[in-house]
């Protein structure tokens, strides 16, 4: 029997393969992925299947669904094709969701990382600022920002990012505070690695998994916030968005409920898909958290 311990164990399968295996073990996450892909396809093919402007009049106003095959899901009170709006709306909702999430996570990571890594007065200043944002209710702040900036789709995206960066910032800070005391950080310092490189190349990759999972939550919230704004009539009127559709469908809710119900269902399914995806990502990225 040999006790020499320099022989290597069998190589592990590639990381992506492992992640996929753990993700696929969660059935609900797979369902989320399927819905997400459908929404993606809708957004990508918006111009192809319905090669028309969604804001153009397509038929008799308030045609019920499945009556006229030129407008399979019917038309709203201005005669606009609901199916076309749904496809183009997917594009806008995803765009707002993705961009707002990237922005807010970006701000959150930088502030949280600096705050958690350096500590001391830097931490105090940054965290008090974060708290100042957190004390104002999200939606009220969003309304105020949109009122000031105006309601074009770019500003709405920025405003959503501004109201939702605080939670990721706190999360990143907590991760950094626990990771900065680990020996591998000392080891990197001992090699002469600069602070910036330690923050972004050493610690951040280790802090990412919970952030990625949380990004799915922010994504769902951004879509909801955008819809809520549009519902109140503060959305960008130049784009077909699901929120705009519900906002306009509200007027005819009692007679022609489908005008609001169809985009409403789309929002519910999309948000659901994100939260299921998030759960699956959590299983894949933090396998040790369960059990």
């Amino acid at each position: 029997m040999t006790l020499l311990t320099t022989e290597l164990p069998k190589p592990e399968p590639h990381r992506a393969v492992l992640l996929w295996r753990r993700f696929a073990r969660n059935r609900a996450a797979l369902l989320g992925l399927v819905i997400f892909v459908v929404v993606l396809i809708m957004a990508a093919t918006a111009g192809l299947i319905e090669p028309t402007d969604p804001l153009r009049r397509a038929g008799v106003p308030l045609t019920k669904p499945f009556v006229d095959w030129a407008t399979p899901l019917g038309t709203d009170q201005l005669g606009r094709d609901i199916l076309a709006s749904l496809f183009y709306g997917a594009r806008i909702s995803l765009l707002v969701g993705v961009l707002a999430t990237l922005l807010s996570i970006g701000i959150g990571v930088v502030i949280g990382a600096v705050s958690g890594y350096f500590g001391g007065w830097i931490d105090d200043v940054l965290m008090r600022t974060t708290e100042a944002f957190q004390t104002i209710p999200n939606f009220v702040l969003l309304l105020a920002l949109v009122a000031i900036l105006g309601s074009s789709i770019e500003y709405i995206t920025v405003a959503i990012a501004i109201v939702s960066w605080t939670a990721p910032a706190r999360m990143v800070r907590a991760e950094f505070m626990s990771l900065r005391g680990r020996e591998f950080v000392d080891a990197a310092r001992n090699l002469g690695v600069s602070n910036t490189a330690i923050i972004f190349r050493e610690i951040l990759p280790n802090a990412l998994p919970p952030i990625v999972v949380y990004a799915s939550v922010i994504m769902a919230l951004s879509i909801l916030l955008e819809s809520a704004l549009a519902f109140l009539g503060l959305g960008d009127p130049n784009h077909a968005s699901w929120g705009n559709m519900i906002g306009q469908g509200r007027a005819v809710l009692r007679s022609d409920w489908y005008c609001a119900a169809i985009p409403g269902t789309a929002i519910i399914l999309t948000v659901l898909s994100f939260s299921l995806l998030g759960e699956g990502l959590n299983d894949a990225l933090n396998p040790r958290q369960k059990k």
Binding site: R182, E183, F184, D186, A187, A188, N190, E202, P205, N206
Partner: peptide
């Protein structure tokens, strides 16, 4: 240079 106590914790 330094060699640390816990080889798991000291390697990223």
């Amino acid at each position: 240079q330094m060699v640390f106590q816990d080889p798991m914790a000291s390697l990223n």
